[in-house]
């Protein structure tokens, strides 16, 4: 029988003072816990990016404040950010990927000038890959623009 002997001292007494801690049930319990936890473990962390389709009903009860019309268009060449009458193109990086860092910079600058701005419409061409759309939505959320609408580019 596995156990740990603990010498509790007291040399002069008549009664045996050695204490045996039973380790087998403890090891059994640990083995059961490990089995259960291994079976129920979730190794991938999954999340969601909430968007609405352009033209759908808004779920907020308060009427939206008049803010800037902010559009982000994804094209084969890169991002095209339109804020009211102003427009800026963000070209793809040299390796052919979309420049998310620069987009966040621009969006944060707009957010700084318009602190009440919450809404942005992301438009994409038909050929744009889903991962690039997700990247654009992710960057909008990073720049504290939580009301993201998605629509097709005209």
């Amino acid at each position: 029988m596995a156990g740990v002997s603990v010498d509790t001292g007291g040399g002069g007494g008549k009664k045996a003072v050695d204490l045996q801690i039973p380790l087998v049930p403890f090891i059994d319990m640990l083995a059961m816990m490990i089995t259960f936890l291994m079976m129920t473990a979730v190794w991938t962390q999954i999340g969601k990016l909430q968007v609405s389709q352009s033209g759908g009903p808004s779920d907020s009860s308060e009427p939206p404040k008049p803010t800037l019309q902010l559009n982000l268009t994804l094209t084969e060449q890169g991002f095209k950010l339109t804020a009211g009458a102003d427009s800026v193109d963000i070209a793809k990086k040299a390796d052919g990927t979309y420049d998310g860092g620069k987009l966040v910079e621009k969006l944060k600058a707009i957010k700084k000038d318009n602190p009440d701005q919450r809404a942005i419409t992301v438009m994409a061409e038909d050929s744009i890959q889903y991962q690039n759309l997700v990247l654009a939505v992710d960057k909008c959320l990073e720049a504290e623009l939580p009301d993201v609408s998605v629509s097709a580019a005209m």
Partner: peptide, 8 residues
């Protein structure tokens, strides 16, 4: 109307 994109 509440569309969620599942991501890792």
């Amino acid at each position: 109307f509440n569309i969620n994109f599942a991501v890792l």
